[in-house]
Design a protein around this nucleic acid. Structure first.
Lengths: 187, 187
DNA sequence: ACCTGAACACCGTTCAAGT
DNA sequence: ACCTGAACACCGTTCAAGT
């Protein structure tokens, strides 16, 4: 009995992510992942339910990469740090990032990111009733930008233009938060 | 010589879109499309270069569905009408809409939509230098929201909440345009 | 417990052949 | 000109078998 396992869920996800980054999502097949691990395709099924489960695991990996920003920073810096982290992850793993938009994720990491945004918006002085909606608007805007850029929808623009666009987006989001927080300002 | 063609690119795309809407994107296989048209899979290759070309065609179909708003409306109504049209298309064809984010499209329809947004922003009084960037911010925000909703990222919220979120997004975008247009306001 | 070999139904795509 | 039949390499997944 070969008691010492040769592969694990972790090594499978690492191999799958590497293949996706190097050769694109279509190249992530059970056979290709197995080949990289020097194992038969059927060996994967002991550690992963099926291919869909493997792809879900890749998305989890991406979310785990986005580290929560340091808690001692002021709220607006925490938000911009998180936004830059998401954008960086998208450019590092463009193919898998596209999956993120089509698969709603419910892992602890994903909920943690959301919770940290809630905390920042609370500090910003938003009414509790406005917080969830504002969080949704912020994250769709950031996710939409990062996904579009990763998919190459802006590839005809120079990197400097895209950087400026992103900075502009963040400024604009900051205005939105301030505007929502300002009690003297009717919406 | 069977001179009268039984199928065409148009009938193939119609069949493919119907399959995607009814059974999801993975169900769109060459064999399934052919079966629906009562034809051999190999017959498709005379009208479509390959499967990738077929998928590109589905995205074109979606863009063609988003009709340009009536030109006599005021600019802000033209923008909100276009936004609602995009959202409606996303909910009608959620699976194919996800493709739109991962495949940059360069058809005449896509360029036409962009041009009409440029025209609206010109009327809104934006400086020419601000127009392309603002257009990019608007469309990523709208596209991001529509894609997230279509993918079910908000499915835990009632439709009324999502409608209100979308209305909120549009108001907010309107603020952004006014703010950018206001010459007395430094950015 | 973990991995393999053989097998199945399905996939995209090609090529030569039919009408 | 348009479609078909036969064929190929590849895919995800199953099951029984090996250690």
């Amino acid at each position: 009995m070969g008691r010492t396992a040769q592969i694990s869920r972790a090594t499978i996800l690492t191999a799958g992510l590497a293949i996706a980054d190097e050769h694109g999502l279509p190249a992530v097949t059970m056979q290709a992942v197995a080949r990289r691990l020097r194992v038969t395709p059927m060996a994967l099924y002991r550690h992963v339910a099926n291919k869909d489960d493997l792809l879900d695991g890749l998305v989890e990996r991406l979310l785990a990469e986005v580290l929560p920003p340091a808690a001692e920073l002021p709220w607006h810096q925490r938000l911009t740090t998180a936004a830059h982290g998401i954008r960086a992850t998208a450019t590092r793993h463009p193919d898998v990032f596209a999956l993120l938009l089509s698969r709603p994720v419910r892992t602890a990491e994903a909920l943690g990111v959301r919770e940290s945004i809630y905390a920042a918006l609370r500090e910003a002085g938003l009414e509790p009733a406005q917080i969830p909606r504002t969080e949704r608007l912020l994250s769709t805007a950031i996710l939409g930008f990062a996904a579009s850029e990763a998919a190459g929808r802006f590839s005809h623009h120079a990197a400097a233009v895209r950087d400026a666009d992103f900075a502009c987006l963040l400024t604009w989001l900051r205005h939105l938060i301030d505007h929502t927080a300002d009690p003297g300002c009717r919406r």
